[in-house]
Structures are given as C-alpha cells and as structure tokens.
Nucleic acid binder design. Sequence first.
DNA 1: CGATCCTTTGATATGTTTCAAGCTTAGTGG
DNA 2: CCACTAAGCTTGAAACATATCAAAGGATCG
Lengths: 249, 249
Amino acid sequence: LPVTRSLQRVIARLEAFAPLDETDRQAIMALPCSVREVGAGAYLVREGETPPGCLMLLEGFAYRHKVTGEGARQIIAVHIPGEFVDLQNAFLGVADHNVQALSRGTVAQVPRAAIRDLTDKYPNVARAMWTLTLIDASVFREWVVNVGRRSSVARIAHLLCEFATRLEAEGLASEYGYDLPMTQEQIADATGLTPVHVNRVLKELGRMGVIARDKRAITISDWDGLRDVGDFNPRYLHLARNRAAPALS
Amino acid sequence: LPVTRSLQRVIARLEAFAPLDETDRQAIMALPCSVREVGAGAYLVREGETPPGCLMLLEGFAYRHKVTGEGARQIIAVHIPGEFVDLQNAFLGVADHNVQALSRGTVAQVPRAAIRDLTDKYPNVARAMWTLTLIDASVFREWVVNVGRRSSVARIAHLLCEFATRLEAEGLASEYGYDLPMTQEQIADATGLTPVHVNRVLKELGRMGVIARDKRAITISDWDGLRDVGDFNPRYLHLARNRAAPALS
DNA sequence: CGATCCTTTGATATGTTTCAAGCTTAGTGG
DNA sequence: CCACTAAGCTTGAAACATATCAAAGGATCG
C-alpha cells in the first residue's frame, strides 16, 4: 500500500530529530488515518473552521495562505510530500489560515484525539513532532525576512533555493533542477510581489545565467550564483544530520 | 522573590492551554534557572551559536531579528514579560536568529536538559509548552502576511493593535494605551519599512484620529478605527478562553 | 480542438526609499 | 543643575523599484 510507504517516509523524517524505538514506530504505524485523494486547488483546511484532525501530505504539494481584508493573498508556506501540514490543529482550535492543495495529491487525516494520545504516551514521538513544528516556525521566520527585507530578485532566488534544498533533502529533486509546481501568480503571492513582476524577475534570473526555465521546469545552472543572489543560507531549515546531506552547496 | 512571581505568570500562561495538576506545577517551579539582569540592547541569543538553554523573560521586552547579507535587519517578533523567548532552543541546535533585549530587564535561563526532562516526564507540561510554540508560529505567519501584503499604514496599525491586545491580555496595558518600547527605526525593521516612512505613517495615523502620541507613549483614540485600518483580527493570537478576555474589540 | 488559465510584453503610475539637513529628547559628566 | 553629546525624531526634494493597466500570445485540459 502506498500509504504504508508514505508513512515510512514520515517516520524517517521524525527519526531524524529524535530517536524512536520500535514501540514508538509501531504506535505511529497504528495511527488511525483516513486517506483521500485531492484535486489541484482543493481546500484542505479553511481559516475560521475547526479541522477534525491533522493532515499528512502523502503525495503532491500543498500551500498555506491567508487573505487580507483588501483581498490580497499571501502564501506562508509550501509543503512537499512526506510532511505534516497541520500538526498544530491537534492543539490549537480554530484554524488561523487556509491550506490548499497545489497539485493533485493524496492526504491522510489523523483525528486530533489520536495525535494527543500518541504524544501523551510516547515522549520520543512528542519530541520529534514538536521539533518538526519548531522547524516550520523557523521557516516562517525566514519568510518574514525574505518578504520584509530582500529585493524582488533576491526573494525569488531565495524561494528557488529553499525548494531545491528541501526537495533534494527528501530525494525529490534530480540534481540541480526540479519541476516547480507553482504558477507565477503563486510565486508572487509567496514573495509579496505581483505576477507581472515575478515574470520579469524570472527572466532576469535567466539573463544572469543562474537558472534556466522550460515551462514550469526550473534548472539551476549556477547554484553558487543563485545562492548568492538569494542570500540563501540553509541553516534555518535545520536539516537533520543523520540523513543524507543535500549535495547542494 | 520576584522570580517566583514571574514564574507564576509563566505557569498561568501555560495553564491557559493545557490543564496542569499540582505535580506539573511543582515540577515547573522546581526548574533550575539562573536569573540575570540585562541592559537595553544586550544580546540574549546570537545567530550561529548554540545557546545553553531556554530563556524566560521575567521583566522587560525583547525582540528576535535576523540580518540579511546586505545588512538589512528584519525584526521577527517582540516579546513581552512572562513569555518564553526561546523554547525552541531546547530541541533545535544552532540558533537561526538573534534575540536582543529591547529595554532593561530580567531573564531566567533554564538548561536544555532540564526542559527535556520536564517535558519527557510531564506530558501536560509538554503539551502546554508545545502549544505556546505553535502560537508563536501563528504570529510569525501573520507577520509574513503583514509585511508581504499590507500597505505601510496598515502594517503599522496592525503592529500597534497586536501589542495593545497582547499587553492587555497580560494586564500590562492600561485601557487603550501603552508605552511602546520601540524606536521608530525598530518599528521600521519590524514592518519592512524605512524609519523615515514610519515617521510619516505615525503622523498620518495621528491625523486620521486613530492614535495620539506623546513621545513613546501611544494612546489609541479610536480602537475600531485602528483595527479597521490595520486589518486586525486577533484570531491568530489564539488568546486562551480561560483567562480574562481583553476588553478590546 | 475549443476554452480557460497562464505567461509575456510595453507604457504609465505610485508608494516607498534615499539623501540630506535641522531639530528635539534623553542621558552623562562636570 | 547646567552643558554637552549622542541618539532619535521630523521635514523636504528627488530617485527608484515595483505596481497597475492593458492586450496579445502560449499552454493545458477536458
């Protein structure tokens, strides 16, 4: 079953941050979860609602966003397969932002109570999951900096570096290139820019020779260059040491 | 001892999110911590270093920030007395951002190992602390939106609303007004603007009649107006229900 | 194979920054 | 308590990065 394989990826990710023993692992595998397919653009969580549980993203991409009173959208995070998208829903009540599928995919929903029981009984698991949420928070902090203090070119370069590094760490990107599952409008909403300007910046990055594009596929032609342009330092991702380090950098 | 009183404030904050029993409370009170005074501007944590423990802010204000390669500073969060400033240091290694005292104050440092032991043995405490870090993350998300998608006037109004609400919830602000412990340059770094523009926006907010200023003291003359200008909805603060609700809104 | 969504391009508008200088406040030592 | 100094605040004028508006050209998917 693909669910089991995906769960193992989730467990591997957890183990990277806190040692788990066999009972911990079995408890996670025994987690009740309802799996479902979602189409591109499907809402997984809506701001203001109280979600029934936490979501694990098994296949496909998802993003979190908020909409201002003026109707402007800001994307806050993009999630890749194997990540918990909404662990906070086990402990916070009303959702403070939306989660939407970026592409077609598969998600597993775990009831709130199951997560609470698990983390009450298995401190190692609690610690690992807590650490995951702390890393999420670290990424949010970097995004505040990116959107608040970097030029448009740096912002987009930084975003591309982050994806490359995270995808590579999960073995989801072939060397130095990947298929970016976002439209230019979504890149704009993630960087606090307009779609038109994103288009010009992507062209500019091409002209600079640090990336090459073919439709949605991005090839990083000069990693060091892109990293410098984007002022990218992977420290904030807190990549675990006991996993294969990304070949990048 | 003022430390005991401050610790009780911290415990009260924790209890708002997960029920604690007497043994939980005693375990927290028994936490080994070294208290020290800090002057305005003192570094509490430096990016790149591995802090020896977690910090509780007993008195005074503190802020987290990062500096880009270009030398621009972005403030990511401001902390008020009674808050844990760096719970993440118990589980993450190298600090990914700086923490600096905003004003003169007092901090208590708890060794990493003590926090780990505490949370391993007392699941209620772990859940409460975890929840606190999830709320921190929610605030970061709102800051991404604020800096990414709101006009300069709205950004600053939003910041002022957030402080008013948080200070009021902790009983630290007199009705509708407070002493903002930030310079205009720091407000600029928190909102992704320049100090010059912050000055103009503050004047504009005064002209609009939503705030009045006397040196650093801010009086909110029209809460509903400021809230509307700042597109402020306190949901993201996840204020606990079992505490005195803020009189605001 | 049509319809819709996405990308690209150009011209113009604007919010915010930059630079520069004078002014006020708060803190410090004589 | 005053004088001095540094830090922070205020103001104006000019520059610039990014937004807005508009329209044409591609890609993708049922």
